[in-house]
Design a protein around this nucleic acid. Structure first.
Lengths: 338, 338
DNA sequence: AGTCGAATTGAAATCGTTACCAACCGGAGT
DNA sequence: ACTCCGGTTGGTAACGATTTCAATTCGACT
């Protein structure tokens, strides 16, 4: 029903080749022909058919966006940032929800390949799944979102979690805390992994012995946060400060603290990773290790477009800074207060 | 580079027609031929090319998802719900961000049409923009998300805001509140519009006079919430209870209340619309007029698929219930307490 | 044995676009 | 006058699938 290039050609009294040349800004089109074509296109409100273009050229102007859970504000902010950058170049994001399931993730990749997306932005369910990692290579371009796969030929956007964790730890240490806990998510995902490593490394650097019971690793969920926090509070010698390793974990931690009627920061200091609305609205506002999620999206888009422009050369990485933002959820530990 | 139907045909020693028939589950394919084709497809790991299919059949198995801002947790939850349902049928969501801008929204529609999406899920920037509304008709199917456009031939998913607002009002009235404020967003969007109407209608029903100064209409943003709340507090006779008309507005309201050092619910009662993490984590937890956003997404997907299955018949609507959830942010007004 | 019809198959057109190739045109150079 | 060449144009073969149509086979029935 919509007009085709053929109808434009007829109306402009030229061949379809000429219309195509105008469409794609080729040189060697006379001004009069170009004018006639442009006029005909406007009169017919002609838009070239995407499917036909894709079929012919192999490019779709589409980018797959694959994440665990699109409802996570962190991911939707990344998507928004990416979309803003991609939009300018005519690309669209195609969503795929991996639901924390490697199998489903593989399915999604297969579907996206069928759609001939030009690129992929993906937060792998598990960096160690070599099968999925290898599949990335079958796409013209792919960007890992806070994931690291040594073998993979993929760009990566990597928040500098280590620096943020170090800053948070220094802050807590300075307040006098010595028993600091960290609740982190799956070790198959860089974010959680790096936070744990940085936590260990920085305590060692500062010569603070680490009680292994204070380091809890689980899933990236509020349940993990809730259960881990309860276990921490049940210790003979519970921590005086807690770092929550993600926004989902944070929810569980707060619920557990509330259940035990503990006040923040009077009874326990609390720091969380990733800044979302909740942290600012909380009373008191929560100290966070913050990263700019929309900036991550923009960085990912930039890497992707650069790779599409130049298919060769080694994969690039973009490091996104993290900063520690002091608000009102940390204070000196109780035993040290007057 | 990936195998085509032709290669499958060669390997299976049949014609491409037969492969196509197997692919599309046509009857009249002999068992031996079918078996050979299936085997060849597996050996080659063949997947039919989406673009070619789209070109030939006119359907793309893609659905456009157009919203103001998909970083809004409400919209990302809708997207997630829709994606879960659509995934089963092989459809994908293509994102488009309208950025509160009608022009950009129109651009997005045009781009989605070029992509030949089979359907549209859209929260129009402004229901009154007839130009955009008419454009909906050029898609095989479209579902409005909490929008109502009398003329448009589009399905709609409509949360029953009126009932939720009425329940919230009754609750507050029962506690003894008489000066209740509502801060709502743009009247070009059904959500805000219906809430305002319901607010007016229900107060009238209960014979409570409405002070027009207590009804603030602005944009769907935290700034609106912040400014409106400040203005309300500056009145000679400020409200004893406030209903925030959206999650964005809620953020601004809380900040304004905090600035004035007002305690909830001791100094003022607070109810907000749309349940997001923030409301449960707030201290006290906030009473909400809640709707199930993922359910909205699922309902939208269902309407869309039904319409695609049967292109005729009048547009359908799905009403999604809203419920008032009492938590801890409302109490009797100060002057009535002992 | 010849005819019929149902089951099965393949050849070829088609979807809308791009890209290759050949053809044409007009003016400059010899 | 003839060649050459750059600029401009149109015809047509892909791209990878689906769909129509006609052809073929084969058992059953007259």
């Amino acid at each position: 029903m919509p007009p085709t290039i053929k109808e434009v050609a007829e109306r402009a009294q030229v061949s379809v080749s000429t219309v195509s040349r105008v469409l794609n800004d080729y040189p060697f089109v006379s001004d009069t022909a170009r004018a006639r074509v442009v006029e005909a296109m406007e009169e017919l409100d002609y838009r070239p058919d995407g499917a036909a273009r894709t079929m012919r050229t192999g490019t779709s102007l589409a980018v797959g966006f694959v994440v665990d859970d699109f409802a996570n504000p962190l991911f939707s902010a990344i998507a928004k940032g990416a979309d803003l950058s991609l939009y300018e170049r005519g690309y669209s994001l195609v969503l795929a929800n991996s639901q924390h399931d490697v199998r489903r993730e593989a399915d999604a990749l297969s579907a996206l390949r069928q759609r001939r997306v030009d690129g992929l932005m993906i937060a792998l369910v598990d960096e160690r799944e070599s099968w999925v990692v290898d599949a990335l290579a079958t796409f013209p371009a792919s960007v890992l979102l806070d994931r690291e796969c040594p073998g993979a030929s993929a760009e990566a956007v990597l928040p500098d979690h280590a620096r943020g964790i170090a800053a948070a730890l220094d802050h807590l240490l300075e307040l006098g805390h010595r028993r600091i806990a960290l609740i982190a998510g799956s070790q198959g995902q860089r974010g959680s992994r790096v936070r744990v490593e940085a936590f260990r490394a920085h305590l060692r650097l500062r010569d603070i012995p680490l009680d292994d019971r204070l380091l809890r690793v689980g899933e990236l969920s509020s349940e993990t946060g809730y259960l881990a926090m309860r276990e921490l509070l049940a210790l003979d010698d519970p921590p005086t400060a807690v770092i929550s390793g993600s926004n989902q974990i944070f929810v569980g931690v707060v619920l557990a603290l509330r259940e035990h009627a503990l006040r923040v920061p009077a009874d326990i200091s609390l720091v969380t990773c990733d800044d979302v609305d909740v942290t600012r609205l909380h009373e008191p506002p929560i100290d966070v290790v913050s990263r700019d999620a929309m900036e991550m999206g923009r960085a990912a888009a930039k890497l992707l477009l650069a790779r599409l422009d130049d298919p060769y050369g080694p994969p690039q990485q973009a490091i996104v800074p993290t900063t520690f933002v002091r608000r009102g959820s940390s204070a000196a530990p109780a035993e040290r207060r007057p």
